[in-house]
Design a protein around this nucleic acid. Structure first.
Lengths: 172, 172
DNA sequence: TTGACATAGTTAGTTAGCTAACTATAATGC
DNA sequence: GCATTATAGTTAGCTAACTAACTATGTCAA
């Protein structure tokens, strides 16, 4: 599933929104404004995350696979399970694992019980790479969120959940 | 600028976050939780938007170009200006305009004053396409945001702005 | 006024997603 | 027990971003 998002660098002014609302009177201006603000901020955050990860030779997709493996008890999973959890196709996961294996960050192991299946394990080098990137990542996220206290963060979760339950309505 | 975002289908549980926090004690769990929640929701919204636009034969990039043109007084702009406002490279904008021109939704006009420059104008068919898609888009955004009243939406803007001003800190 | 630099747009080639189809293996039901 | 169906993973080809380099044109200063 491909998710390209424009940067929406030029969010509409109130005037622009009203101009559009004249042609499209049903427009809920504050809803559109919130919607675009959210997409725009997430795009900026995603780009900032990319920049951080690239300092450590990683991309979002590969980084996420390493994290998913580290979550596992024995640092091992299968391509299918990883694809499901990362929200990408199995074909995409094949490519992600190829890249990580080439860099020595994961290894493929054959499963003797089901010979269709492959185990993917985080290597010591992979764990070491995570030990480099995660503290940097956590530091940046902490600094970025420093303006919100705990109650702000809870309120944000509530608001995001409200919008999240509206996605079903969006899709109908 | 390419912005691929994993779907992050499998947000960390509190337990997983704590496990990571043991290895990386500096982790600010509620900050990471808010960060990921935001990215995840935006990804879902972006995907829902794609689905809506595809019903009208559009993609986010092309749709956004049409909107930028409609914002202009004379429905006209240049590839460079459009690229800047959309947050994509000029090369990408060439491709977007190519596709829209092929579908007859915009037209390229030569600028007699600066012969390097090209004007891009929204055609009647382009306006008509927007008149199809925008009401549908506005209806969906309205329905999606129906759970938030005006004060919720203002609060959301405040919180997003707080995070937005933290992006600078993220990048350092 | 002309040489150096800047700007507008395009082209060529890369990347990392995607879908669809393929191979190999396992599971199921008649 | 064998044919059908399902599952795991990979491969091939498509798409729409990207960067870098290119052409053409405009600007500016010595």
């Amino acid at each position: 599933m491909q998710l390209i998002m424009l940067q929406l660098r030029d969010l509409p002014t109130k005037e622009t929104l009203k101009k559009f609302a004249q042609r499209y009177p049903q427009a809920d201006i504050s809803a559109v404004s919130a919607f675009l603000h959210l997409l725009r901020l997430a795009t900026d955050l995603s780009f900032a995350l990319d920049a951080c990860l690239s300092l450590h030779g990683l991309l979002q997709g590969r980084w996420w696979v390493l994290i998913l493996l580290m979550r596992e008890e024995n640092l091992t999973s299968t391509p299918s399970a990883l694809a499901e959890k990362a929200g990408v196709t199995r074909a995409t996961m094949t490519g992600l694992i190829d890249g990580l294996e080439r860099d020595g960050l994961v290894e493929r192991l054959l499963d003797s019980r089901d010979r269709r299946s492959v185990s993917v394990r985080l290597t010591a080098a992979g764990q070491s790479r995570l030990d480099q990137v995660m503290p940097d990542y956590y530091r940046r996220v902490h600094d970025c969120m420093a303006g919100l206290d705990e109650s702000d963060r809870e309120r944000l979760h509530e608001l995001l959940n409200l919008i999240g339950s509206g996605i079903e309505a969006f899709n109908q």
